[in-house]
C-alpha cells in the first residue's frame, strides 16, 4: 500500500519537471533520455511521454513547472548531502557485455559531449594471458579522495553521504584534480559544452552538474539529483544486463538497476569475492567490483590493445 502512495504525486511532479524543462526549450536532461513532450494540442491538453514509456494526455492547467531551488540553496544543499546515507555501488563484471546504455544515459543526463565520459566501459586485461573483460568505470567516490585533497578552492569536495561533487560555479580550471585522480574519472570542458546555447540561463544544478560550463571540471556524481528524488542513478537504471547494484551502505542494502531486486550489500560483496579498484593506492573506493567469472556473455570483438595498459 505504502508503495503506491507516491505514484500519482510523483507522476505529476515528474511531468511538471518535464514541462518546466520543455518550457525552456530543452528536450530533456533533468529526466531520463526517453521523456519528452510529444505535442501540445490546441485545447490545452498536453501529450507527454513519461519516463516509463507510455504516452499520456494531461490538462495543461493541472501542471505546474517543477520547482528549482535557487542557486545558493542548491549549492548549500548539494554540499551538505543527504543525511544518514552512505551511497555505494557494486558493479558485477560477469554481467557486463559492453552494451553502453549506461554511458549513453549518463551523457544525456549530464549533457556531455560524446568524448566526455563520467562513466566509461573499458576493455580490460589484467595480465598477458588472462581473459579480457569489460569494466564500467564511474568515479570511485573514494573515502580518501586524492582529488579533493589537491583542489585549491574547495570546488570539488566530499559530502556526508560519501559523494564527491564538483561545483562548477567555483572551479578555476587548474585541472590538478585530473592529475591527482588515479582512475581518470574526471573530464574537463575544453570548449563550450554540448548544447551550451540551449541551456543558457538555466539555473545551475550542482547535484547533476548541469548545465556544464566551459573551462571547468565535470565528473560522475552518482546522479545526486536523482538520489534526492529517491531514484537510482541514470547509469544504474539504464543498464539492460543487471550489472549495477546501488544503495545505502548504512542500510546494508543495494538494489539492482535492471531487476530492481534488493539484496544485502554485505552479503553480496562477501559471497562474490568483491574487490575495489587499485585498493593498494589507499583511496578507499565506494565502488565495488564483482569479478568477471561465470560470465553471462563471453568477451566478443577485437581487443583494442594488448595488456592492461593503455
Amino acid at each position: 500500500m505504502e508503495q503506491n502512495y507516491n505514484t500519482r504525486r510523483s507522476f505529476l511532479k515528474s511531468l511538471g519537471v518535464t514541462l518546466g524543462v520543455a518550457g525552456l526549450g530543452v528536450s530533456s536532461g533533468v529526466l531520463t533520455s526517453c521523456s519528452k513532450v510529444s505535442s501540445v494540442s490546441p485545447e490545452g491538453k498536453i501529450r507527454l511521454l513519461t519516463p516509463g514509456g507510455t504516452l499520456v494526455e494531461v490538462d495543461a492547467s493541472q501542471l505546474t513547472p517543477a520547482e528549482m531551488p535557487s542557486l545558493t540553496d542548491n549549492q548549500k544543499r548539494g554540499r551538505l548531502g543527504m543525511e544518514g546515507k552512505s551511497w555505494v555501488m557494486v558493479i558485477d563484471l560477469s554481467k557486463c557485455r559492453n552494451a553502453r546504455q549506461c554511458m549513453a544515459a549518463c551523457q544525456n543526463h549530464h549533457q556531455l559531449r560524446p568524448e566526455q565520459h563520467h562513466i566509461n566501459v573499458l576493455q580490460m586485461q589484467d595480465a598477458e594471458h588472462t581473459a579480457p573483460y569489460y569494466m564500467p568505470k564511474p568515479c570511485m567516490h573514494c573515502d580518501n579522495p586524492p582529488c579533493t585533497k589537491v583542489c585549491p578552492v574547495n570546488a570539488t569536495f566530499k559530502r556526508a553521504d560519501g559523494i564527491v561533487l564538483i561545483d562548477n560555479e567555483r572551479c578555476i580550471g587548474c585541472r590538478f584534480c585530473i592529475a591527482a585522480c588515479p582512475y581518470s574519472a574526471r573530464v574537463f570542458n575544453w570548449f563550450e559544452p554540448r548544447d551550451a546555447e540551449k541551456y543558457e540561463g538555466v539555473t545551475y544544478n550542482i547535484e547533476a552538474n548541469v548545465p556544464q560550463k566551459k573551462g571547468t571540471i565535470s565528473k560522475c556524481l552518482f546522479s545526486a539529483d536523482l538520489l534526492r528524488d529517491g531514484k537510482l542513478p541514470s547509469c544504474v537504471s539504464a543498464c539492460p544486463n543487471s550489472v549495477y547494484w546501488f544503495g545505502d551502505r548504512n542500510e546494508d542494502a543495494v538494489t539492482n538497476g535492471t531487476t530492481k531486486e534488493t539484496v544485502s550489500f554485505s552479503k553480496l560483496i562477501r559471497d562474490n569475492g568483491a574487490y575495489t579498484l587499485m585498493e593498494e593506492l589507499g583511496t578507499k573506493p565506494r565502488v565495488y567490483y564483482l569479478p568477471p567469472k561465470n560470465r553471462t556473455f563471453p568477451f566478443e570483438g577485437e581487443l583494442i590493445e594488448k595488456g592492461h595498459q593503455g
Binding site: C151, V153, A155, R170, C171, I172, R175, K214, G215, T216
Partner: peptide, 18 residues
Amino acid sequence: MGRPDRLQNVFLHGRFAS
C-alpha cells in the same frame, strides 16, 4: 587556468591543504 576570471576564488576559498 580554465577560468582565469575566477582567480580571486583562490583568495576567497583557498584550501590550506592544496
